[in-house]
Computed example of a mutant assay.
Amino acid sequence: MDFRLNDEQRMMIETARQIGESFGLEYWRKLDAAKSFPTAYWKAVCDAGLCGVALPEAHGGSGLGMMEMSLIVEALAATGGGSTVGQLFMINPIFGGVSISRFGNEKMKKELLPRIISGDLNCCMALTEPDAGTNTLEIKSFAAQDGDGWRLNGRKIWITGVESAEKMLVIARTKKLQDSTSRTDGLSMFMIDVKREGLTHTPIDKLGTCTLDSSSVFFDNVRIGPDELIGTLHKGWRELLDVLNTERMVTTAGLVGTGELAIKLAVDYANDRKVFGDRPISSYQGLQFPLAQCHVDVESARLLNYKAATNFDMGLLYSNEANAAKLIAAQAVARATERAMQTMGGMGYAKEFHVERLWRDCRLFRFAPVSEEMLLNYVANHELKMPKGY
């Protein structure tokens, strides 16, 4: 693998850094307090062409890959946005862009992709259910055939970005389990309007990631048209995995940028802070060693994510690397933000020093979009070939 960045990649990183720095940490602190979607920020990202980096040129994208998207997300996260940046890319160019560009019909591609890329259209994905959690194959939301379309009934939970979204990628059963040839048979994907008769949602009050709402979503006899099917009827499971595994990559990139930012804030603070004489507290190994270990761990996650992204872009198998990178990143950044707060002492607990927001936000990703326990199950079953215990 060649780790040298080309001129185009370096230019994208620099553009992302300039955008991130133009908004800065205070922008995010205020939006976090107000629980407001970062509308101006996302529009700036899209206006610079960064949202569509991995989406087709024919519809306004750059036609590049997940490697470039990962580099952009890292840079944006490291300049203030933190792990929330990964979620912004997750709900729009991944849930919306990847699903439509890879599996959508030509009408969807023509009408929706340019609007996603420009930032005029936000998306979300309704997958998780209260009684299924990460066991996606046990979801109960059901889309029954109704003429040339379907009628959807069911409930979803912890759906990100519903309030700001116009379109929702919905995963539902279209065939009862007892009528299916396997547990993966009978799942389908649809791209529907958020504002539609029978679709309601209520917010969930939560600890962090406050600039993106989380909601419970209810479907009461929601009509789905025939042109809203994404991919193959009843065979959406394998297609969904491409969406979920690319989701892992942008999540990891956002975490890597968060770790980089938290460590920088801690080091800058420690270099300025003098308590015991004229030497800065950063000279003490009791502070140096933990931060150095955090840096090494974050870099390890970064490199493994690069391998996942490169494999994806080359058409090679990538899910093992994508899942492992997300596992390492979530754990490493949890430690990095915790250590940054500890380094700063009482000021690490103060909102004006920003690390507490990074700490609150990144905690989500130890169990979302998939928990570390399920990721370890995946590694044990698929890489170590150990028997499945659940």
Results as ranks from 00 to 15, higher is better:
1 M>A: 11
4 R>I: 14
15 T>R: 08
18 Q>R: 13
24 G>T: 10
28 W>P: 01
30 K>Y: 09
35 K>S: 13
37 F>C: 08
38 P>Y: 11
40 A>F: 06
40 A>N: 13
45 V>G: 05
47 D>R: 14
47 D>I: 06
49 G>P: 06
55 L>K: 04
60 G>E: 06
60 G>F: 12
61 G>K: 03
63 G>M: 06
66 M>R: 08
75 A>N: 03
81 G>D: 01
82 G>I: 03
85 V>M: 08
88 L>M: 10
99 S>Q: 06
103 F>Q: 06
106 E>K: 13
112 L>M: 11
115 R>W: 03
115 R>D: 06
118 S>Q: 05
119 G>S: 08
123 C>P: 02
133 G>E: 04
137 L>G: 01
138 E>N: 14
139 I>L: 14
145 Q>K: 15
149 G>H: 10
152 L>S: 02
153 N>R: 09
158 W>N: 14
167 K>V: 08
170 V>D: 00
170 V>K: 01
176 K>V: 10
182 S>Q: 11
183 R>Y: 10
186 G>W: 05
188 S>Q: 09
193 D>S: 14
198 G>H: 05
202 T>Y: 13
205 D>R: 11
206 K>E: 05
208 G>L: 09
210 C>I: 11
211 T>V: 14
215 S>D: 12
218 F>K: 10
218 F>V: 14
226 P>F: 08
229 L>W: 02
233 L>H: 09
237 W>R: 08
241 L>M: 15
245 N>K: 11
246 T>A: 10
252 T>E: 02
262 A>N: 01
264 K>T: 11
267 V>H: 00
275 V>W: 09
277 G>Q: 00
289 F>H: 11
291 L>V: 07
292 A>L: 12
293 Q>W: 05
295 H>K: 13
296 V>C: 07
300 S>A: 12
308 A>I: 08
309 A>Q: 04
310 T>F: 07
314 M>A: 15
315 G>A: 12
318 Y>I: 08
319 S>E: 14
320 N>H: 13
337 T>H: 04
341 M>N: 02
344 M>V: 11
345 G>L: 10
348 G>D: 05
353 F>L: 12
356 E>I: 15
357 R>E: 07
360 R>E: 10
365 F>M: 11
368 A>G: 05
371 S>L: 06
374 M>K: 14
379 V>P: 00
380 A>F: 13
382 H>R: 13
384 L>Y: 14
384 L>D: 07
390 Y>I: 15
